[in-house]
């Protein structure tokens, strides 16, 4: 099927929000090349309906208590006034 260039790997890593170290894109491109060569066997598959997954046992969407909320908050690095805090997303115009 297709060949994967180092530039393509860098673009995919960017989409997946992974910073690559020096030389990592080249190594990954080589690995992907080998893996894709192997999975090219999938071309032989004839068309078939896509499988349904799981038993699909849905429950009512009702509010309820889930334990551990405070410890989940505790695993978050920063908080202020009861809100979880992350770096600024939009630029400041002040």
């Amino acid at each position: 099927m297709s060949r994967v260039s180092e530039e393509e790997v860098s673009r995919l890593a960017g989409l997946a929000r992974i910073e690559l170290a020096d030389g990592e894109a080249a190594r990954l491109a080589g690995d992907l090349e080998n893996i894709l060569e192997h999975v090219a066997a999938i071309e032989a598959a004839s068309e078939a309906p896509r499988p349904a997954v799981g038993a699909g046992s849905f429950r009512e969407d009702e509010p309820g208590d889930r334990p551990g909320e405070s410890s989940a908050r505790g695993a978050f690095p920063d908080a202020e006034n009861g809100f979880l805090k992350v770096p600024r997303v939009l630029p400041s115009h002040e």
Partner: peptide, 17 residues
């Protein structure tokens, strides 16, 4: 970039592809 190991990155990039 620093938190994931080599195989994890490989499969995430492959999956994204």
């Amino acid at each position: 970039g620093v938190g994931f190991g080599a195989e994890t990155k490989r499969r995430i990039v492959l999956g994204t592809f």
